[in-house]
Amino acid sequence: MAQARKADVDFFQLLSHLLQQVETLTNREEVELRAKIEALGVEITKVPLKPSVHLNEMEIARELDKLSAKLDYVDEMISSAMASDPLVQSLLSSVADVWMPVITATSDEKRNFIRSIRDVTSANDNLK
């Protein structure tokens, strides 16, 4: 479980780093997109509270409904950003082959992906 959280944290750090690179290249600050990435990162990496009692099926269903609502909200935020800013839509579309597999990846796959991205980034930084 801790390794999965670490992979998620690493993934959102990678997203922030990529956004920073885009901002540098375009000389334009993406405040709204940065805030949305940070908010999503907080939600995804949040440590759930340990229940003091075991939940019954109805309570589990309510908790799942709450989580579903949060995911719907995140989807709405991303869709809104894409609809209101063509640059965001273009950016997300052009890198979908990178972020979609990472989002749907297992913890091990995320760690391997992030490790390979760091290797490439380090190699690029050394060339500068």
Rank of each mutant, 00 (worst) to 15 (best):
R28K: 15
S80W: 11
P86M: 10
P101L: 12
V9W: 09
S16Q: 07
E30I: 02
M82H: 00
M1T: 02
V120F: 03
Y73W: 11
V9F: 01
N56D: 15
A4Q: 05
S80T: 15
S94R: 02
V22L: 14
R115T: 06
I103G: 09
S80I: 07
Q3T: 10
M100Y: 06
S93I: 04
D108N: 03
R115A: 02
E29I: 02
V42W: 09
N124L: 02
K70I: 14
R118C: 06
S16N: 10
S68C: 05
A81S: 15
V74E: 10
Q20G: 10
V42T: 13
T26Y: 08
I103E: 03
L64W: 08
S80C: 04
V74N: 12
D8A: 15
V88F: 13
T45V: 01
D125F: 13
T121Y: 09
F11V: 08
L18D: 10
A4P: 00
L15E: 12
I44F: 08
A4G: 09
P86Q: 12
N27T: 05
I44Y: 08
I114E: 01
M82N: 01
A123E: 09
K6G: 02
R111A: 11
L64Y: 04
L15K: 00
V42L: 12
T106L: 06
M58T: 14
L64P: 05
Q89W: 11
S90G: 13
S116F: 00
V102Y: 06
V102F: 12
L18P: 00
V42P: 07
K70A: 08
R115H: 07
E59L: 01
A105K: 04
V47E: 00
L91K: 09
S122H: 13
E59Y: 03
S122N: 13
R62P: 03
E30S: 09
D65V: 09
A105H: 08
G41Y: 08
K36L: 08
S94N: 08
P101Y: 01
S84N: 15
E109L: 00
L40F: 07
M1V: 10
S90T: 02
L71N: 14
H17L: 04
I60P: 05
A105Y: 08
A105D: 00
S90Y: 08
V74W: 14
T106M: 03
I103H: 13
A4W: 06
H17E: 07
R28L: 13
M100H: 09
D8F: 14
L14A: 06
